[in-house]
Design a protein around this nucleic acid. Structure first.
Length: 311
DNA sequence: AACTAGGGCAACCGCATCGTT
DNA sequence: TAACGATGCGGTTGCCCTAGT
């Protein structure tokens, strides 16, 4: 569930029952083949949407939410069912490490898979597999903390630096810390891949080389090196930028900062996509940069009407 | 064969968010 | 600006199946 502190709402806090869930005479429980057929035929003819009134129009004694869920998770032609392939599993692991339990976002990057399916797979299979490998499925870090950093092992990355501010929301935009120089001297990291072959390196010990495309100059334009300990904020762009950003992360690339100009232009339009990446240390110009993008509690790609922004 | 425990998965539920009025 | 409606998301529940005893 969302972290209540991650967002603010102007809505009344009075809980209003979702109308379609409180109706009498609404059928619950497993769907029958007949119901499936009714729903599928109706959507094929009329299209998706207007879920609230769809049951009546389709002749179903279900609530709109139930119809939507059934369609999205089961009946949609694009839904791929069955065994999750190893490459899909690897992708889930990598994205989950970056995003946390953002199932819809993870599903959005795995064609044919639904958020529900991935969530179930995670809860029933992957998390156990990680635990058996000695990895905390929540943090993607070793379950047995390193004695050198035992106190920090379970501390969210964002909170390790007491000076790190929380995610900021201002003027309808969302900001998060981008980079903090944490070390002048680079020391080769241990290779966790040997220990945890199914995991990308735990971010606490992840060091990224200065890949092509990492434009330090443009980074510095958002970060004043004269204020090493200060935090810096960077607005996040739209879903295209986010998508390419995620791609770059998944490919073990570093931020594509040359898109910064484009980002700034996009931000002029008030786009407020929120980006979550666990802290990663980026080697650049002899320094290790700790990218402190919003932690999973932040509202990465928060839902919006008309479809999840990054699906 | 009967019972029990555990896993897998579909579906439900509560609530956040956004657009509209 | 607030209220409302519609939609989407993530956590949780509960049913069904299977393996073990």
């Amino acid at each position: 569930m969302r972290n209540p502190s991650s967002t603010t709402s102007t809505r009344s806090k009075i809980t209003v029952p979702t109308p379609c869930c409180s109706k009498v005479g609404i059928k619950k429980g497993p769907w029958t083949p007949e119901e499936d057929e009714l729903l599928a035929n109706y959507i094929k003819k009329e299209g998706e949407g207007r879920w609230r009134t769809l049951p009546n129009r389709a002749g179903l004694a279900r609530c709109g939410k139930s119809c939507r869920l059934r369609w999205m998770n089961y009946l949609r032609p694009s839904v791929k069912r069955g065994h999750i392939a190893p490459d899909e599993e690897d992708l889930i692991l990598r994205i989950h490490r970056l995003l946390g339990n953002r199932w819809s976002l993870i599903a959005g990057r795995i064609p044919g898979r639904t958020d529900n399916e991935i969530k179930n797979y995670w809860n029933t299979s992957l998390s156990k597999k990680l635990i058996s490998q000695g990895i905390d499925p929540r943090t993607h870090r070793p379950l047995k903390p390193n004695p050198d950093s035992s106190e920090m092992a379970n501390v969210p990355v964002q909170n390790r630096n007491p000076k790190s501010p929380p995610v900021l929301e201002e003027n309808g935009r969302v900001y998060r810390t981008v980079a903090t120089r944490v070390s002048e001297n680079f020391t080769a990291p241990p290779n966790l891949d040997d220990q945890f072959p199914n995991q990308v390196a735990a971010d606490a010990t992840e060091y990224w080389p200065n890949h092509d495309g990492f434009n330090m100059g443009s980074l510095q334009s958002g970060y004043d090196q004269g204020k090493n300990d200060e935090d810096h904020i960077e607005d996040i762009g739209n879903e295209d930028t986010l998508s390419s950003f995620l791609d770059s992360l998944l490919n073990d690339n570093v931020f594509v900062y040359q898109q910064r100009q484009q980002l700034q232009q996009q931000n002029m339009f008030g786009l407020s996509s929120k980006l979550v990446v666990s802290s990663s240390q980026i080697l650049s110009h002899g320094n290790i940069w700790e990218a402190q993008v919003s932690p999973p509690m932040a509202a990465f790609g928060d839902k919006s009407v008309g479809g999840a922004p990054f699906k």
